[in-house]
Simulated scan of single mutants.
Amino acid sequence: MQQFSATDAALSGFRLVREHLKTVGVWAVLMTVASLIVSIGAIKLAGPQMAAMVDLGAEPGGDPAATFKAMEGMWPLFLFSVVYSLAIYSVLLTGLNRLVLRPQDSAGAYLRLGADEFRQAVVLILVNLIIFAVYLALVVVVALIGGLGAAIGGAPLGVGLGLLLGIAALCFLLVLAVRLSFAGALAFDTGKIDIRGSWDLTKGKFWPLLGAYVVSLILAIVVYLLLLVIIAVIGASLGGGISAMSAAFNPDMSSMSAFFTPAGIVRTLFSGLLSILVLLIVFAPAPTIYAQLRGRNVSDTFS
């Protein structure tokens, strides 16, 4: 089994951007159009409800009854968001895997709609269901043991046990997420859905994998915040001042007119690029490390 460089993998998203500017540009344009459609759809479906939710969230000690009332009628938006997210990430993550693992297959800017994308969607569903199921099981275990500790030794013991077990549960979920991180690359590379294969392939490599993922996440946050500041400054310069800068970080989706302010238009135009850059930085390390572990010459991807 080959080894890999965690530092090299953490920076792989930046190299992909540098070496595939045309592809990144196409993805950004497509993502901008998709984001625009989604934003308009969200405003049309539940603009007033979203505004009410924001107002309730700003109030200290919000009223649960008012919150549930504001959520009435939002289920079409929730369903739409789930379907959209699954579809868009299945296509983009498959395109990313294709870019890293089959760099010569560049037709259509590496984007397709086919069996590979379908398998990626299934993997996304399965991995998230596994993590969610484990999360629910851990919540129940922590609650039961914490309650038992409180019954035996009083509230301090129950709180202490609950805190320790809660931290342990979060650590276990982190381990699970890292160990399953190759599932998408495996499905694309082998044409088979093999969740267990990711667990086996990452055995003994948790810490370097975690290091690569954490560094890439930190870099993505830095890029995200930097671009947000740039968007806010441009939006403010076009009109609106400080309020326009605030809108770049917290867009008003209560109505079309409130959303498409000068700052909102700038934010919308940059949204695709922002999303694609973050996606590449965060998700490129997994297929890159997978390729290295499989003995592929990853440098070919960046040539």
Rank of each mutant, 00 (worst) to 15 (best):
A263E: 03
A258I: 01
L92I: 12
L210K: 08
A183S: 14
C171S: 04
S257P: 02
A258L: 04
L217W: 13
I145A: 10
K44Q: 15
Q2F: 05
V140R: 05
T67K: 08
L157H: 01
M50C: 07
S5T: 02
A28R: 03
I218G: 02
V278D: 07
S39L: 13
V282L: 10
P103E: 04
A65F: 01
G149V: 06
R18T: 07
V223M: 10
L161D: 08
N297Q: 13
L45S: 15
A109P: 07
A121L: 07
R102N: 08
F118M: 09
L45K: 09
D63C: 05
T301H: 01
S271I: 13
R196L: 09
L157W: 04
M31C: 11
A183K: 08
T301C: 09
M71R: 01
W199M: 14
G57Y: 08
L176F: 00
R18Q: 14
R112P: 09
V33E: 06
L101V: 09
A212H: 06
L56T: 07
M53L: 13
N250G: 00
Y213Q: 13
T288L: 05
G146A: 15
Y89M: 15
A6P: 00
V123C: 00
I242G: 02
A66T: 03
P60I: 10
V282G: 09
V214A: 15
Q2W: 01
N250K: 14
V266P: 00
K203L: 08
Y110L: 06
V134I: 11
W27I: 02
N97V: 01
L129T: 09
I145H: 03
G108D: 12
R98F: 01
